[in-house]
Design a protein around this nucleic acid. Structure first.
Lengths: 192, 192
DNA sequence: GTGCATACAGACAGGTCTGTCTATCTCTCG
DNA sequence: CGAGAGATAGACAGACCTGTCTGTATGCAC
């Protein structure tokens, strides 16, 4: 039962804490998981956590921040090897892959927003910035695809992205494929 | 700032409790809000809550159940006065209206799913059934619209619905309009 | 009026959670 | 060797939360 020492003990306590927080917060939620669970999973002392992060909210923010950074670099790497005009659809290939991956459990950012009702929570501010970043990329790719209303299409792709993740969490990865199929319609044949 | 007695005291304590639970759970989350908050807002006694609902989880389930029933009748009433082939798009008109309403704060079911990591929680079972109901309606309407791949279109509409609500919660109601616009494209120009 | 169902009021127990603090250990650098 | 940085271990305070229990008040049926 006890999912124990996944991160070896010589990696530095900060990374160990972040790894444990990531595992537990993502699979069970930031409010369901208490500090003590993170400490046990990281095999770390409480003082270490508070020395490195100050409070639980900052640990949550650091968890979200690391997720955001990983997502940005993953996405940019994923679309890099196709021409700009194909990148929007390629992005949805990544979404499908993510939704199909074994440990997929929905969007950590959507979860954090739902769990933390305070809009000023540091983790929520990070999540809000990430939405802007994604919308920026989608807009850029929609323009490159030469669709007739790039801003509207970018907004629609944003909806498809959010919907793909939220729906795939409940109904399985086929919803991500439905989203990709829809994106293809938005981007594809209509040259006008 | 204490939002006090919104429901008059002669409506029956069960309804008062449900009204208070609905307000607080929807705006702040089912885990953020404790029993005592609900009791104070409902102007009720703790014994009444436990006599009527047994435990907090069942109160949460009753809250979700009431939301679900209200949504079903609202949706069916909303699409009733257009022909079947126009109902899918009409459904997204309702989504737009909901996202534009003043107290819109996202989908209560998505929030409950994010907040309660236990898939067997009674509230989550109710939420899961509601998804099936919605998908059923969308499939029915997609068929009536005579699209070429009704199941696929229904799945895509489900994604658009989830995405509209999730994205509108963050970005405002324009995302719901983006979703409607996309649905229009999926359902084809010939309509009305 | 008596009895009963329903509701209010609130104390209380038991648990959990965050955050602080003290004490100890270990490793590295000088 | 010795000092200090960084870590562990865990007790503890204070807050909060769920659920139980006792006692009291109100209103209705008979």
């Amino acid at each position: 039962m006890p999912a124990k020492p996944v991160t070896p003990r010589d990696v530095g306590v900060r990374d160990r804490l972040l790894d444990a927080a990531d595992r537990l917060f993502y699979t069970e939620g930031v409010r369901s998981v208490g500090i003590d669970r993170v400490l046990a999973d990281a095999d770390a002392a409480k003082a270490s956590l508070y020395a490195h992060f100050g409070c639980k909210d900052e640990l949550v923010a650091a968890y979200v921040q690391r997720r955001v950074e990983a997502a940005r670099s993953t996405i940019d790497r994923f679309v890099r090897d196709v021409p700009p005009r194909a990148r929007a659809l390629r992005f949805f290939d990544w979404v499908v892959e993510w939704a199909e991956s074994a440990d997929f459990r929905g969007c950590p950012l959507q979860h954090v927003v739902a769990e933390l009702s305070d809009e000023k929570h540091p983790a929520r501010l990070i999540a809000a910035r990430q939405r802007e970043w994604i919308l920026g990329r989608l807009t850029e790719w929609a323009r490159a695809a030469e669709v007739s209303h790039p801003n509207r299409v970018a907004g629609a792709l944003m909806v498809l992205f959010d919907g793909a993740i939220a729906a795939a969490e409940q109904d399985g990865p086929k919803r991500a494929r439905d989203a990709r199929w829809t994106a293809e319609k938005l981007l594809g044949a209509p040259r006008r």
